[in-house]
Structures are given as C-alpha cells and as structure tokens.
Design a binder for these strands. Sequence first.
DNA 1: TTTTTTAGGTTATTATATGAACAGCATGTC
DNA 2: GACATGCTGTTCATATAATAACCTAAAAAA
Lengths: 212, 212
Amino acid sequence: MNSMSDFRIPGITIYRLGMYARSLERFLQEGRDLISSEELARACGVNPAQLRKDLSYFGQFGVRGVGYSAQTLLKSIRRILGTDREWPMVLAGVGHLGHALLSYEILTRRGFKFVAAFDVDPAKIGKVVNDIYVYAMEQLPYIVREHRVEIGVIATPCDAAQEVADSFIREGIKGIVNFAPTSIKHPPNVVVEQSDMTILFDKIAYYLLRLD
Amino acid sequence: MNSMSDFRIPGITIYRLGMYARSLERFLQEGRDLISSEELARACGVNPAQLRKDLSYFGQFGVRGVGYSAQTLLKSIRRILGTDREWPMVLAGVGHLGHALLSYEILTRRGFKFVAAFDVDPAKIGKVVNDIYVYAMEQLPYIVREHRVEIGVIATPCDAAQEVADSFIREGIKGIVNFAPTSIKHPPNVVVEQSDMTILFDKIAYYLLRLD
DNA sequence: TTTTTTAGGTTATTATATGAACAGCATGTC
DNA sequence: GACATGCTGTTCATATAATAACCTAAAAAA
C-alpha cells in the first residue's frame, strides 16, 4: 500500500493532506521546523494516529523518537498533491464569488493561477480583474489551447453550471471545481470537486436546533 | 432510531439532506411534483438506497409504489434542517468573499439573513453592502443582543479568524461558519462548520496527476 | 376481486474510517 | 557502550458508512 500511484487511498486522506500542508506553512512562518504528529494533528483538529496513518499511505516522512521536519514534510506533501508545480486555470462567472476567487492570493501562492476569466454579461467582458482579462465564452477553446489550461472553475449561477462544465470538458479540461450549488454530471475521466456553501448553513441550522 | 432529536445521525446524512432540498427546489421550479428516490438520488449523484436510508432516520415521507411529493418532502426536510424559519447572522470580514456572501441571494431565500457586517478596516466601516451596514468589531455585542444573532460567519484573513471566533463565542453565538482556511478551536457547545476552498484545488491537482 | 407492477422502507452485508495499542528506531544519558 | 526515553510507523479492533437484497404497501390492470 505504499505506492504513490495507488488509487485506493481515501479521498478524505487527500483532503487532510491539504490541511496538513496549510498548517505546516503557518508553522514554518513562525520560524520553527521540528514538529510532532501530536502538535500538527492538534493544530488541524485531527487525531495524531490518523495523521501518521494518512502519511503512511505515501511513505515514511518522519524520524522515530524525533518528529517531522516541517519543511521536508511540506515539500513531500506538495509533491504528493501536485502543488509543487503550476496549474493554469480558467474561471467562468465573474460575479462576486468569481471576483473573490480571482483575488484569492493563497491560491496563487500554491501554484493555482487563473490565466483568463469568462462571462456572458457584455458589461463584464473586456474588463480586467486582478490582472486577469474577462473574455466571452466563445474564446474558451483558444485560451485553453494557448495556455494549456488543466483546471476550470465554475462560479456561475446554478442554471449555467452544467453548460459551462460541458464546454470545459469539450475543450479537454479534466479538472473542475464547481462553486455553483448544483451537482455536475461528468464522464469518469474528468475530476470534479463540488463546494456548496449553502449546505454548510443548513448543517449549522440543524445542529443549532439540537444543542442541549 | 426514528426520533428527530436522535443525535447519532451521521453528519454526512445531514449534508445530503441539504443536497436533496436544493434538488427538490429546482424540481418544483420545473413545475413537477412526483419524484422517485431513483430520480432524486441520481440528480444529487448518490445511490437511491442511500437517499431512502437518509430519510428513514427521520420518518416516512414517501408512498410505496408511488414515490415522493417533492413539495411535501421539501417541507419535511426544511423542518428537519431548521430552514423553515429565519436565522439572523452576522458577517466578519468584508473582503471579496464577504461581499459575495452578503450578496448571495440563495442564502436569504433559505432564511439565512445577515443583519450586520463587521470589519477592522476604517475605510470599510460605515459602508453599506446589499443593504447591510458595516460596523467596527466593537459594536458586535450590541448588534448580537439587538437582533438575537445565532450564527456568525467568518470571512476574514486566516490570522484573524480565531480571534473573531472567540469574540462571537463570547457574545453567545453558538453557530459559526468559517471560510478562513484555518481550523477554529471552540468549546463543545458551539457548532462550527469549516469551508476551505484551497483544499478543493489540492484535491483536484492530486487526482489530475493520477488520471489514467 | 385478484393479480401484477412499482417503488418506498428495512435489514443484512460489505466496505471504509477511526482510534488505541504496540513494535521499532533514533537520540540523549549515565 | 548499555540503557532509558520519545515519537514514528504499523497493526488490529472497533465504529461508522455505503450498498445490496429483501420485504411491504399502494396503485393499476385484468
């Protein structure tokens, strides 16, 4: 079970690797390096055994009796996740959320770079947001080819999301992050991550009703 | 296991209830009402058996041999989730994401209403975004008491998130939605939902690297 | 009516994820 | 250099979740 190419690693482990990476970045910023599974796990709100197990899917990164070097571990996690390189992305939907994404500096720092944005609103087309030009959807094929775009981000209203996803897929984009609160149908060779904020609020409401 | 107050219902079931609700809303908008577990489940990308099981935690909502009434089921799910009432909320952090949240109409439609926003930037204090006034953080206690605020939303930078959460908790807010990419420490009688967009991108990168 | 069909509810099985316990290696100490 | 200590890597038991199979009720057809 130690091969990096093993596909049977739980998705939630991948998710937590991202959490660990973020935590390690902050830890390094504070000028420290040596960190134990205990400390890193607590910072992420998980069990230390789970952290060690998550890492063990991919190899051995610590030193027994000592702990982990934050720098080394971060580098390893980045290699595992693929965040040690740049990922050119396009955005569809330059509304408020789209604006937020285009300006989200933490994405850029991790190598996720928007090379272009798209919208159907003529008032938005031609504008520049955070150095990123807003095109009409028709320009998508050209841009994708030109910049070898691999990730498409959807921040459109619900009812446009599937259509945009289909366009992305048609142009060969294999990774989609969807912020529209609707689930996207897609072939198995395309990876889609959904993020539905509205459901977070539903969950909060549910648990608030039942506190005590 | 059929009591609505049973706390041992999996969190992921609650999450899916939110998905079902959204799907049902769209279904009703198309003017239809009768829907089978098969159709609803497929629209949400889940297994029909899972949908039926999720619902069975809370009672019986369908008619055997027939299906569900979308309207009735939606009403039931809303009562379960607590989205059949209004939830007054406050926002901390009026950056791009904060703006997006204040303008997110789908939240309002579901009863989640921002009554005030807060920021530390003097340039933002006093502004009005989508009819919502931006206050200095010092005003928090007064606003929370005045509007009986039950949910606090964090859209600040990482390093301010914990401090804001502590303020929320100090004022008696029991539900927090955190969009800052850091995990919030909180007592057990406070409910926190985290949403970290950056990790979605990490996951996409991971799976893109391993396609084929 | 009786039969057949349909689709929800329920139980059983399988798969997955978590947490605790322990084995094993590096470091520091006497 | 032997020994004690500390923290990782790994295994295993438990808990949780997903799927499949089955049972039952309602509606439609014969």
